[in-house]
């Protein structure tokens, strides 16, 4: 303790200075590729589209674009997007957790590398290409349709493509690796002897899972949920390829304003709404997890034991 206290303050200051310098590239990156574009979007969202051939103008500032953005068509799509994102994230967790658990706990270290590659290779493949792959698979004339007709499960062409279900399937497929990876890291880091200890102390598999595995995997679950949910909310490739009219998402509407309608002001207002909504949901996630944490502490049956200070 004293050694730290008496360390020469000069050396420490110089150290802090050099650390600040090292942070410069990331700070510049953030300023130019996040803060500036975000500021521009925010700024444009208060403007208007003055004429057919001009994308935006900030001569007159108002909140009119927000009013315009929040029309019923946008809200319907927005609600559908949120639905797809929440269901998609939940499905990714439900599918991803057993896979990550199997990889981290059951597989031999050598097999883990191979399975990890199997998880990652599709992810490295071009996003559009893999989504088009599903378009081919799900199309009414596709081989899946033929196969299902052949074995008699289906009578008539497969009617899944260009629906919300197709988008749901597509996003789960596209974002699953982003869920598996953080879960795998969290579970792999867990000391497996803790599960033995739990079993030794009277817990069966299921109880040990809830009292040891889940609490220790919680940081991984959190990052997985965020890594999947946030980009999923803004996804527009998957619904563009698989969704058709009945499965469109907000990302497409934003892109439409920027690319087709050339109305950057309205597109910006929509984008800001989307970002606020994501932020809101992330905050809700945070609150929810705090509550789960409290509930788990209750479940541990001794949440109040420490605080009561009865033990000394």
């Amino acid at each position: 303790m004293t050694a730290v206290a008496t360390a020469p303050p000069r050396a420490r200051r110089r150290f802090t200075g050099s650390v600040g310098l090292l942070a410069l590239p990331i700070a510049a990156w953030l300023v130019f590729f996040f803060i500036v574009p975000f500021g521009l979007i925010l700024w444009y969202s208060f403007g208007e589209k003055p004429s057919l051939y001009v994308t935006h103008s900030n001569d007159v500032l108002s909140l009119a674009r927000y009013v315009e953005a929040l029309d019923p068509a946008f809200l319907t799509t927005f609600w559908r997007t949120t639905q797809i994102a929440i269901v998609g994230t939940a499905l990714c967790l439900l599918i991803g957790f057993p896979i990550a658990y199997w990889m981290a706990v059951k597989l031999s270290p050598r097999a883990r590398g191979i399975v990890l590659a199997l998880v990652l290779v599709p992810y490295w493949t071009n996003f559009l290409v893999r989504t088009i792959g599903w378009q081919i698979t799900l199309s009414p004339e596709g081989f899946l349709s033929d196969f299902l007709n052949g074995i008699g499960v289906l009578n008539g062409p497969l009617q899944v493509l260009y629906t919300q279900q197709a988008v749901q399937l597509g996003v789960v497929y596209n974002y699953l690796p982003l869920m598996i990876l953080p879960l795998y890291v969290a579970l792999e880091r867990m000391d497996h002897r803790l599960l033995e200890a739990s079993r030794d102390l009277g817990g069966n598999w299921w109880s040990s899972f809830w009292r040891v595995t889940i609490p220790l995997a919680l940081p991984g679950i959190m990052s997985g949920l965020l890594l999947v949910f946030v980009p999923l909310m803004g996804d527009y490739i998957t619904p563009s390829v698989l969704g058709g009219a009945s499965g469109s998402m907000v990302g497409q509407m934003v892109a439409g304003q920027f690319q087709r309608a050339q109305n950057w002001a309205l597109g910006s207002a929509m984008a800001i709404c989307l970002m606020l909504a994501i932020l809101l949901v992330v905050i809700l996630f945070g609150v929810l997890f705090k509550l789960i944490g409290v509930a788990l502490a209750r479940f541990r049956h001794l949440g109040d034991l420490d605080r009561a200070g009865a033990i000394s």
Binding site: R193, D200, L201, G202
Partner: peptide, 30 residues
């Protein structure tokens, strides 16, 4: 968990997410 024995593990295997009291109380719940 159905044997009347308990183990002190080599590397102790204490639950890192639980306090000392909660660690000790772990088995009593069952």
């Amino acid at each position: 968990y159905k044997r009347p024995v308990n183990t002190v593990f080599q590397a102790y295997a204490l639950f890192p997410h639980l306090s000392v009291a909660q660690n000790v109380a772990y088995g009593l719940r069952y």
